[in-house]
Design a protein around this nucleic acid. Sequence first.
DNA 1: GTTCTTGCAAAATATTTGCAAGACG
DNA 2: CGTCTTGCAAATATTTTGCAAGAAC
Lengths: 136, 136
Amino acid sequence: MQTEEEILKIKKVKNTAVRTVVLRHLLSQEKAQSLKDIENALVYTDRSSIFRTLKTFEKKKVIHSIEDGSGMTKYAVCAEGCNCDPKDLHYHFYCTNCEKTFCLFDVTIPNIQLPNNFKLQQANLVVKGLCDNCNK
Amino acid sequence: MQTEEEILKIKKVKNTAVRTVVLRHLLSQEKAQSLKDIENALVYTDRSSIFRTLKTFEKKKVIHSIEDGSGMTKYAVCAEGCNCDPKDLHYHFYCTNCEKTFCLFDVTIPNIQLPNNFKLQQANLVVKGLCDNCNK
DNA sequence: GTTCTTGCAAAATATTTGCAAGACG
DNA sequence: CGTCTTGCAAATATTTTGCAAGAAC
């Protein structure tokens, strides 16, 4: 597992106090976090600072964003080696019971055969249902 | 092609003036519409009435919603026979250039092999890139 | 000292609800 | 009448920006 410092260095993002705590928080959570989630967890850090940090992280591909239909954009740390290219696509799973959203890195996505002349750049693939913990 | 009245009857939604114009508008558009899109198109219909109509339509499976990452939920009419079951899944394509979102009914989705004990209920599968019109 | 980052405040954008009046049966 | 729908107003939720002070180099 990489440390926050290592990740930021690899992704060429300057390390600051806010960036470290935001990234640390994201790494510590198994589910994708919304801005509000992070705000609640990091009570001494300003919302707009977190917001801008997330935008910076996303642009530099430290994290990726997920629209899971909850009304809030969620963020999750990219896997090691991820460049957010089409080849790095993975499903996200949104549990309709516990409302956690997480990355399904192990489920392979078959080639998406788009219509003629369409060009794939990225994707937001959210599968909804019950996670193993809630499917009892 | 079904008329608005037929669709509402099949989906057991009472027909009203607002519902007819909202559905007619959705049917007339090739791209999925946001609440604001509809509001702008139907200038004499109140936003909250449109909003509630969309919620009703969604619940009754007249339409389905799409989170394409634009920050606004989009809505599109379900295909004939669609019950919004997992078997009715289709990709949505969001063109990053012209910003249109539309349903790719013709692209089949391979079986999604979820981890053990996960249960698929529905999905929001948005593929982003350039549509044929913008990929020149 | 120039550039980037941060905190505070406030604006902008989107979604959702309360309530009373109206439509419909 | 009783239920459902509509319009208006306002609340709530979420995201985003302006600006001045501070930190980093």
